[in-house]
């Protein structure tokens, strides 16, 4: 196990691609069970398959066809974290990775002012603050497109929640996103019913009141 690596320090670095190199704009996660494993790399030009991490250098290979990955910038960076009561807790400032035998895994997210200051280039000021980390397995990402990340709601706990709680939590998400978030969940039918009434309310605002 090596020292933790901040995703922000990889963005803008170069990735080696079969003799050439391009600048990294994002890293993509391909979920393998519980692990958040980096499986894809995005550059200004294209999406690539991650092939390894050695001595602080990324390498990647051209992909055949589209890559099905969750991109860190879209799914985690600057997204709001809410607890299961819907309270806004904090925002993701950076993503912490760990290298393990040529692989890269997401292990935590950094929250708080230090990450913000570092990204603004105020590195010395950021270094004076204690970094605050949240283990990645404490977060549930209902949607990679929009909406908050849920704190302490892993898939199993998400399934154990009262359906009313889930419906309430997802009521802020756009209807298609909320439906996508529970597509493999026992809450799917209830959320779909709620979304149907939201659509009806939208169309006939007076009729339902």
């Amino acid at each position: 196990m090596s020292a933790p690596i901040l995703a922000c320090t990889i963005f803008g670095a170069r990735v080696a691609i079969e003799g050439a190199s391009e600048r990294v704009t994002d890293l993509g996660v391909v979920r393998e069970g519980e692990a958040w494993r980096i499986g894809a790399v995005r550059t200004h030009r294209r999406e690539l398959l991650f092939t390894g991490w050695e001595d602080g250098r990324l390498s990647a290979a051209a992909a055949r066809g589209a890559i099905d990955a969750v991109w860190l910038r879209e799914a985690l960076f600057d997204r709001q974290i809410v607890d299961l009561d819907g309270r806004r807790v904090i925002r993701v400032g950076d993503v912490v990775l760990r290298a393990d035998g040529g692989r890269l895994d997401v292990v935590a997210v950094e929250v708080g002012a230090a990450a913000v200051l570092r990204r603004l280039g105020l590195v010395r000021l950021a270094a004076r603050l204690e970094p605050q980390l949240l283990a990645i397995d404490r977060l549930h990402v209902p949607s990679a497109a929009a909406g908050p990340l849920l704190l302490d709601a892993q898939r199993e706990r998400f399934e154990q929640l009262e359906t009313e709680t889930v419906t309430e939590l997802l009521s802020r998400l756009p209807v298609p996103v909320a439906e996508h978030a529970v597509r493999e969940s026992r809450h799917r039918a209830a959320v779909a019913r709620n979304n149907k009434s939201r659509r009806r309310r939208r169309r006939y605002p007076r009729a339902t009141r």
Binding site: Q80, R91, V116, A146, R172, P174
Partner: peptide, 21 residues
């Protein structure tokens, strides 16, 4: 009401921390 986020927070989420700052 729809996003549950204020303007600066939403700008940070959609346009990045530098724009929000």
């Amino acid at each position: 009401a729809v996003t549950g986020q204020g303007l600066a927070g939403l700008i940070r989420e959609r346009l990045g921390v530098r724009t929000a700052f």
